[in-house]
Simulated scan of single mutants.
Amino acid sequence: MRVRLYVPEAENNKEVAISKEQVRHLKVLRVKEGDKIGIFDGKGHEFEATYSGKVSDKLLLERPIRLREEPRVKITLAIAVPKGARMDVLVEKVSEIGVSNIVPIICSRSVVEPREAKVERWRKIAIEACSQCERSIVPTISEPIKFAELLSTIKQYNHVFVCHMTGTPLTKEHCECPSIMLIVGPEGDFTPAELDAAKEAGCTMVSLGPTILRTETAGIVAIGQIVGLSQKAYK
């Protein structure tokens, strides 16, 4: 597997600086002189560079690399933040699967209201996950917003689904569109008022299966189902 580094300013045929941490990373991986390295910008571009073997923080980007295919539908996951390190796991896994955006939301029954340091940590986890899985687009992770504020933004999506036991299963017809938002509530569920507000705003209730899932499990399963169904929908 090719060693890959995230450099947001990467451009073809240009020399780019890498961080001291990335230089140390190359040493730990025992990258040798002449070895090829992938440099990706997180926006869908990746380039090849040759490691000189010198203690340097500069690399010349030599040529573009053919990228892995992205999901056909852009998926935004709006999710109530679970306790402990479970959000870390969710960010890692949905970044690998193909989410485009992650929006932490604060609901009436939320138990966690993340601070800025947490959001920055999740952004780093997303970069690391994309580097490992050879994905060249890093999902954006926004600042937390209130559930009511989230509902005011949903008109920009073709479909908005609330993951809930009262819904019906997702189908490939749900995925025949350019953009989808999936909304996952807190461990204590949405309040009846929140569910009513979501329906009134135009959201569709969807079920992820017969069992009750933890918040982070529901988020991972939902993204996986949409990616799988969207591939079938366009074949």
Rank of each mutant, 00 (worst) to 15 (best):
V3Y: 08
V7S: 03
N12T: 04
K14A: 05
K14L: 04
E15G: 00
V16I: 05
Q22H: 05
Q22A: 12
V23W: 05
V23P: 03
L26K: 01
L29C: 07
R30W: 13
E33G: 07
G34W: 00
G34I: 00
F40C: 03
K43C: 06
G44R: 01
F47I: 00
E48T: 01
A49D: 00
S56A: 14
L59C: 03
E69K: 12
I75F: 05
L77S: 08
A78W: 11
V81S: 13
K83A: 12
L90T: 05
K93M: 02
S95P: 02
E96R: 02
I97C: 03
V99D: 02
N101C: 15
I102L: 09
I102M: 01
V103S: 01
V111P: 03
E116Q: 11
A117P: 02
K118G: 10
V119F: 09
R121M: 13
I127A: 15
E128W: 11
A129F: 12
C130F: 07
C133S: 14
V138C: 08
S142N: 13
E143R: 14
E143G: 06
K146Y: 12
F147Y: 13
A148F: 10
E149K: 12
L151Q: 00
S152I: 08
T153M: 15
Y157M: 07
V160Y: 04
V160T: 14
H164Y: 14
H164S: 06
L170C: 09
T171A: 13
K172I: 04
C177W: 02
P178Q: 06
S179K: 01
I183M: 01
G185L: 09
G185R: 00
D189V: 09
P192M: 05
L195K: 03
A201W: 09
V206A: 13
L208E: 12
G209S: 14
P210Q: 10
T211K: 10
I212C: 06
L213E: 05
L213I: 07
R214F: 08
A218G: 12
G219D: 11
G219C: 04
I223G: 01
I223R: 04
G228E: 07
L229K: 03
S230N: 06
